[in-house]
Design a protein around this nucleic acid. Sequence first.
DNA 1: TAGTATTAGGGTCAATAAGACACTAATGAG
DNA 2: CTCATTAGTGTCTTATTGACCCTAATACTA
Lengths: 226, 226
Amino acid sequence: MADQRNPLFTIDNVLFTVKDKTLMVLLVKRAIEPFRGCWGLPGGFVDVTKDDNTEATALRKLKEKTSLEPQYLEQLQTFSGAQRDPRGFSVTLVYYALTSEQQVSAHIETVDDVQWIALSEVSQMTLAFDHCEIIAQAYERLKQKALYSMIPVFCLPSQFTIGQFKCVIETIIGQPIQRKSLIRRIEASEMFAAIDEKVQSGGRLAQLYKVKPGVDIVNFERNFRM
Amino acid sequence: MADQRNPLFTIDNVLFTVKDKTLMVLLVKRAIEPFRGCWGLPGGFVDVTKDDNTEATALRKLKEKTSLEPQYLEQLQTFSGAQRDPRGFSVTLVYYALTSEQQVSAHIETVDDVQWIALSEVSQMTLAFDHCEIIAQAYERLKQKALYSMIPVFCLPSQFTIGQFKCVIETIIGQPIQRKSLIRRIEASEMFAAIDEKVQSGGRLAQLYKVKPGVDIVNFERNFRM
DNA sequence: TAGTATTAGGGTCAATAAGACACTAATGAG
DNA sequence: CTCATTAGTGTCTTATTGACCCTAATACTA
């Protein structure tokens, strides 16, 4: 399968969401060797008859496990080595993705080989290959990006309040942020539109927002403080 | 060479340097098909008998063309597609690298299949594969990173003045910066040590600095203005 | 029904780091 | 000796985030 010039090449996905103020990662129980029965990242081989490129592979693999496409998908990096796979020198191209918990949970509760695991528990588990290290790297990237970009919004449903947005950011970066700072960024980015509807939240009714269709993700020139 | 599960996998490098206030990219004339005789990025296949991982492949390929290792090397991303290589679905993992021009030029002037090309000229050339697009992406990444990190120092020789440092940053980001802002960052980063020597520069003698051995690259929480 | 806890939303001042710019220092050229 | 040039410092301005306060609106409770 892998000759000298062409190492084993796979795709893996680190799909994150935030559920009850906890950052979760999607893991699947491996049905095939190596590491059969072990939990690991959803991924697999490129199928050149189906996939136009590696991003298509990543989306296809995620769809197989969640029945949906994630709201955000980005290349993380590749991980490679002669030792990381018992079959020989291997390269895995890792994507990381974000989705809202509501989108996916309905489906994964019907199967028992796919599960959300809290990031804090992952480090105590024994995962297939170097997937523990991969998840750690993906989290570092997500955390950094949450400091200057609006991508955490893709952990939320299509309609959300500022309070929910603040909560997912704080969960990802592990630090409280100023509500006011987030509001300023929401206004400056012009990425969001207020919806003509409010929703109860334990106090005063909260304004609902949505992402404007077709907008680009805005990056800021400063980070939130850590 | 590439079966259905295992697409063609290559490594490419985008090696940058700054020479006479111009950002340059290292290109090589291809000796083999496809695109034989065309200019393209230095790269090739992983050799699992020589390389522990893909970074080793990148370094080996760069060393073949420049006789030296670059001062900085980082994964950019992969580029893939069914159309990008006439041999079929292919994936190339791209690294970008920085070096000082002095390090490399002595060697490449002895061969005629390796050359520094100004970035501004690249867009008018017809390069192999999608290497034009790859270079553009690598430049975007380098430019962004130059706004908040000290990596442009790796385009300089081991001893350098603040004036030279300022010049490479300005060349990379295409904008002037405040000398004072750079000095503040140099002090805050604690990455550099003053050398007990000064050098002429057309005016008052300039203090020489070097990168302290073993330090990490410092990232700042704000960008230079663009 | 009144009071209280709670979250939303907005106003304002402080802190921080970069931008702008002036000023002095030191060197070479003429 | 004067001037042009680059190095290096001091300091005020500007922009963005942090901190904190006040008010609004809702649910809960006595």
